[in-house]
Write a protein that binds this DNA or RNA. Structure first.
Lengths: 193, 193, 193, 193
DNA sequence: AATGAATGAGGATTCATTCAT
DNA sequence: GATGAATGAATCCTCATTCAT
């Protein structure tokens, strides 16, 4: 059965399986065996490719973040005006992949990890810095000197609404949250005029 | 030398020890033995009083929430005007006990738990409902019909800033976050005029 | 089933079981599970009492050495003249417990360990120093200034014969080795006259 | 790019790598993967050439013994008188290759193996018989009927001093041991006159 | 000949939980 | 009430060995 060039395939399969298992369990209390089984291989192979459980988790989180980054980039590319671009950023956090239960679970556990794992914390700060920078870029032409504070607030608003929508019971929570955020953004822009 | 009336003392000691251990570990990966040792008793006794690990965690989380509730109530009682009361609510989330590392850790893990544990989720919803209701009560006289949306946004803003301050590296983050929130609230109130 | 004050009993049982298992396997490739089973307990309990495999091995080796030390002390106490005491030391290495297969196995593995484990090496040096000192004490009156070299040679002779007898096929090798050593000692003493 | 006639090269590389790895680890706890990597090939190939771990070890031990045999033969060829030849045998055990750490490690582990592996034991007995025969051949003209016992003692003395020198901390131990052995041999020869 | 993908058994260690005392 | 002895399942990780290519 062994084939050549399996490494990237196996690694991707393990990353996907990790996200799925963590999503299903809701926590990082997932065994390497479970992940490997879901990825269709032995636990030994999982270790062979990643070296250990922590590295598997790290790769999975990296994947989540890069997917989110891609979604944001896509939204930014599609939008033309600053206002539309801001809306794109907001939507990217609540649309599609970003709001799947397993992605939510990854985020929540990521926050927990960020307390103690320097790697996780670094990754998180990169995400936060990029989000702030994206928001600032498009808020600046609209708000001028008020942009930095507004960016900070908008970023927090996104995280806060994400958290509430993610842990609520309303299936439409994501959409409503995005709408509400958009309206709040209008207020912020309107108040400055 | 068993004593009478030890139960509440033992339970409180275990709850405190749990919060401390979870705070130190940054995650729920703490053993009953560690908790019991820190509480000055055997692991068997911990089971005797709580029945199992999950119940110990549940009790600890309940304690955190009730402490936070107390802080909010205190702040509300001290303030006189709606605006001051809103500020009190904000400050209660970033002052004193609420921002100790072990309390932060408890919150983050609480979010994780809320995904899968009905008990945790229920507790979380109670906290959220109470927060919204408190905010609404004082926003209503200031904003009228805009109050519900504003309450929702303010609540998210609090959670989002809490998250960012908690996982940042700035030791003054909590204070700054509270100031920024207060300013954002001023904006919200000003925009409505 | 739990009882009080089991610790020394359990520890002794584990030490005995370790010596027996290592002796049976001929090497340190013995699992904690095997040792624990032979000692009549679970592997978890073995860890509870010793902390880990290495410490179990260390305790077993310490036991072997102290048994040997006891045998030498006994032989020295029983003998009256220097010559008889030297013979007692020789006999103690080839008599009784010292030549049981599991003790032989322990010694051989001990030599291997001594290469890399500082603890084992220290223990070995203590054994060697004590042997040399014992021999010297009784050779001095017989050989004067030639005693130190003779002690060194006699010690090596003991170890060398032990090794050869231990790994030979002759069931009477130990006895013959002791006789031959005794004769060699006579030669050494005679030559000096 | 498989090549023809690689077999002896591969086998030799694996034997060398085994000795080096065992020497570095101080024990037989080395993996086939480590050995193969050091030998510059895959673990699969190591199995292909040797069939399994045990056979790799056996080949390595055979190599050690044949090197030692060669050293002894060389020393014997260079010496002219019986006394000088005996000295040559002694020196061969403490000079050059025989006292390198990895060779020491191989010997110690060889003793351990000899307890349970018939192959190792046979090899060991061949070494011992050859050593005894060599010693006897040159002791006979010097000691006559006392030669057999003297050969046995001298052989044990060599092993014993080797062991002590190998596990001591003195870097000059090998040289000193050889000198001391030589002096002891003089005593044995002098005593018989 | 040579690789390295793949397996799966095995082992040390940890831990929640139970229970005799 | 209180202890800590005891268990055994569970988990991560390692490794010899096999095998398709």
């Amino acid at each position: 059965m062994p084939k050549l060039g399996m490494e990237p395939i196996r690694r991707a399969a393990l990353v996907d399986a990790t996200i799925a298992e963590v999503g299903q369990a809701g926590s990082l209390d997932v065994t390497v065996g479970q992940i490997a089984r879901r990825a269709g291989m032995s636990s030994g192979l999982a270790h062979h490719y990643f070296g250990g459980k922590d590295q598997i988790f790290a790769a999975a989180m990296g994947h989540i973040l890069s997917m989110y980054g891609g979604a944001v980039r896509g939204a930014l590319a599609r939008a033309k005006t600053p206002r539309a671009r801001l809306d794109g950023i907001i939507r990217a956090s609540f649309d599609g992949d970003s709001f799947r239960p397993e992605v939510i679970s990854a985020w929540l556990n990521f926050y927990v990890q960020a307390q103690t794992s320097p790697d996780a914390r670094r990754l998180l700060h990169i995400y936060q810095a990029r989000l702030r920078s994206n928001l600032l870029h498009d808020l600046r032409p609209l708000l001028g000197v008020g942009a930095p504070d507004a960016a900070e607030n908008l970023a927090s608003l996104i995280d806060g609404h994400y958290l509430r929508a993610a842990l609520g019971n309303d299936p439409d929570a994501a959409e409503k949250a995005a709408d509400q955020l958009s309206a709040a953004l209008d207020s912020m822009l309107g108040a400055a005029r």
